[in-house]
């Protein structure tokens, strides 16, 4: 009874914040609304009893990525002008593409056969995640670290070149 209400509440919050992100004319506000949407998603993860995902969502997306976005906004001088146009000349094409993508997603999602799990989530799923990371998913685990390293190297090269 309570869970569906909470689910609807957080879903509306996520969608509302997401809408504000794309409509606001102020880049800094857009970043803050994005943080709001990310928090809503974390709350949805908790409703799914995926607490590790929820905390990673906040740690990485709010703590790291959103901060990086704000820094990037601050570094781009023109973006800090208070009012910039939220849309440009290509908004019609963009809208069409977005609607088409949405239709495609709805089509795929409604046709997919979702596996249903009847068993309750384990009381502590974290050891399971840890085991999976170093057994079944060991290649993605290591590749992820190389990928992050490459990203960092690239950024350092670009930043150093400018000086």
């Amino acid at each position: 009874m309570l869970l569906p209400i909470l689910f609807i509440f957080f879903s509306i919050a996520v969608l509302g914040f997401a809408l504000l992100v794309v409509t606001t004319r102020n880049m800094f506000h857009a970043a803050l609304f994005l943080v709001g949407a990310l928090f809503g998603v974390a709350a949805l993860y908790i409703l799914l009893e995926a607490e590790f995902l929820a905390v990673v969502q906040i740690l990485i997306y709010v703590g790291a990525i959103a901060t990086l976005i704000v820094f990037a906004i601050m570094l781009s001088r023109n973006m800090m002008r208070r009012d910039i146009r939220a849309a440009n000349d290509q908004w019609v094409e963009g809208a069409v593409a977005a609607v088409l993508l949405f239709a495609l997603l709805v089509l795929v999602l409604s046709r997919a056969s979702w596996p249903t799990v009847t068993a309750a989530a384990p009381p502590d799923a974290i050891p399971g995640i840890g085991k999976a990371l170093v057994s079944d998913y060991v290649i993605p685990f290591e590749v992820a670290s190389v990928l992050l390293l490459v990203g960092m190297v690239g950024a350092i090269i670009i930043a150093r070149e400018r000086e």
């Binding site: 990525i65 820094f71 170093v134 992820a144 960092m152 350092i156």
Partner: peptide, 21 residues
């Protein structure tokens, strides 16, 4: 500032992956 933030992001993500391990 951006460079420090970027190095932080890399370390943060990798450390979080190490917690379940």
């Amino acid at each position: 500032y951006y460079l420090f933030a970027l190095v932080f992001v890399v370390f943060d993500i990798e450390t979080v992956f190490l917690y379940p391990w």
